[in-house]
Design a protein around this nucleic acid. Structure first.
Lengths: 122, 122
DNA sequence: CTAGGAGCTGACATTGATGTGAGGTCCCGG
DNA sequence: CCGGGACCTCACATCAATGTCAGCTCCTAG
């Protein structure tokens, strides 16, 4: 199939599909006019790629992961994904921490005893 | 005081202080040589700015917020901060959702029945 | 034959705080 | 007077997926 059809069938934009290829996540044959031709398998592959993106994986990580999945190399897939999960966890922790800080700012801002005391510090 | 001292006393880098000024968060007098001169109050102001950044506020939002705090305009500060809290909450939710997706990917990757079935879909 | 639709490449924009480096001014101590 | 340190401005790099535009080729239906 051509890129437009693949886009329609996967929900990815044409631009995104070209980007996936650029990042080495997806390959395509070319017809005589230089247009990309995809095998049926591309539909599932794009679905998997998008699943990765939805899981906050970067294209770089997905590029590492896909071959491991194809090789069914569980230990290495596992190691990679565990590391990513740790990163994500850290990000969530950071944002949760930021929320605490934000609540502090809200407390300061709404404190009736607080009067333009920018000069005197927190 | 000059920018180096302010940086030392606040923990912000010289670069960051110039950036805060560029974003309208901090003002400075200039001496005859064009160098920035800060009043004592700048120390507390920078602390407040950094508190905002630690709370995941953007420079744009901090720029909106500071005048409101100075004016002790609680309702508007409150509205702004509540909106930011909602945004942050949404981000946390999104990341938490991504974690669920990641766990799905981990399940797929470690599923012993999964064998290079990229072609057959998820 | 022709208009238009689909594809192609290449490239810039987005978002944002900070690092970094170049190239220049200025001031002070030795 | 000179070296060096502190400061200045300007500007590019970072990270990443996607949108969007320009300018082009190619195929096909009418």
């Amino acid at each position: 199939m051509r890129i437009g059809e693949l886009a329609a069938r996967t929900g990815a934009s044409v631009r995104s599909l070209r980007y996936y290829e650029e990042q080495g996540l997806l390959t395509a044959e070319r017809d005589s006019a230089g247009r990309r031709r995809y095998a049926e398998a591309a539909v599932a592959r794009v679905a998997l790629i998008r699943r990765g993106f939805a899981a906050s994986l970067s294209s770089r990580v997905i590029a590492e992961l896909l071959p491991l999945l194809e090789a069914a190399c569980v230990p290495r897939s596992r190691a990679l994904l565990d590391a990513e999960r740790k990163r994500l966890e850290a990000e969530i922790t950071a944002m949760t921490e930021a929320r605490v800080r934000l609540d502090e700012v809200i407390a300061i801002a709404t404190d009736p005893t607080w009067r333009c005391d920018v000069e005197t510090g927190s």
